[in-house]
Design a protein around this nucleic acid. Structure first.
Length: 270
DNA sequence: AAATTCTCCTGAAGGC
DNA sequence: TGCCTTCAGGAGAATT
């Protein structure tokens, strides 16, 4: 599931292959993703060069002198570097062809996006309301506690709100709350500043470890080299409902919070 | 303003 | 075997 570690893994994987390489061709096979892929990209990107690749939240930003290509992997998307031009398959919706290599976007469920931004980046509606990066200094226990005041919603959906902090989706929110020993259903405003300090440390630690492992692959996610991420092996709560807690042996439970399944341990999360 | 619900989509899994 | 239902989920949009 592409959350921040998976997007970061993708960024690091594709960057050395496509940076400063002239674009020879662009192909749109299926424009109907979350929003339609702008058809003008075929002409707009031809002969352009991507001179910078960055990530903001779960968005990849590929900059050219004509504008910025924004890509989102949705929940089943992946970007791969294809060298021997293997034939495209059913879910290969978009690709950028360079002299030696092809950057191919694959997304079975089509929740992903490929968009074009020609205006200043920060004005874009998808980017301008985003909260801080979780691995930045600005994302601290004090910040999170401050944001939580007067928020009655449960802490888990609070953590997954992109205006509070970006990049923390269902897997890493579940894992972080387990690591911090915080019950996911607790009202955000009822959690102490000290516990938010702990939670922030857990979030940063888990995200960093997941990036080191190349992200988490549940089903579709692969890195740019086509290989899965191995953080799934490290998951202690997500996907372990009904199994016994690795810390206290109690049976892990599942509840629904904000339409998302949430696994927690009633023995050591309170 | 804050919180909840709906929506897009496909494939896997379960029921009968 | 095969059809139908249910579920998974990122996050913007719509609704309460």
């Amino acid at each position: 599931m592409p959350e921040l570690p998976e997007v970061e893994t993708t960024l690091r994987g594709i960057k050395p292959h496509i940076l400063n390489q002239p674009i020879k061709n662009v192909r749109i096979r299926q424009a109907n993703l979350r929003w339609p892929i702008p058809l003008h990209l075929v002409k707009t990107l031809k002969n352009q060069t991507i001179y910078q690749i960055t990530r903001r939240a779960k968005y990849l930003l590929l900059k050219t002198s004509a504008g910025t290509l924004l890509m989102h992997l949705g929940m089943s998307g992946s970007l791969r570097i294809v060298i021997d031009a293997a034939p495209a398959s059913k879910h290969d919706h978009f690709e950028i062809e360079f002299a030696q290599k092809v950057l191919r976007f694959t997304d079975p469920r089509r929740f992903g996006a490929v968009l074009w931004i020609s205006d200043p980046l920060l004005d874009h509606p998808l980017l301008k309301k985003l909260g801080p990066e979780p691995l930045s200094k600005k994302f601290s226990g004090a910040y999170l506690w401050e944001q939580a005041q007067r928020k009655k919603m449960a802490v888990k959906p609070f953590l997954m709100d992109n205006q509070i902090v970006v990049g923390v989706g269902n897997i890493y929110a579940t894992e972080s709350l387990f690591a911090a020993g915080i019950h996911p259903q607790l009202a955000a405003q009822k959690i102490s500043a000290a516990r938010y300090e702990t939670l922030v440390l857990c979030i940063k630690d888990i995200l960093r470890k997941a990036i080191k492992k190349g992200g988490t692959t549940l089903k579709d996610f692969v890195g740019s080299d086509g290989k899965p991420g191995y953080f799934r092996l490290e998951l202690k709560a997500y996907g372990r409902s009904g199994l016994s807690c690795l810390r206290c042996k109690a049976t892990l439970k599942t509840i629904r919070l904000g339409q998302r399944s949430t696994v927690y341990c009633s023995g050591c999360q309170s």
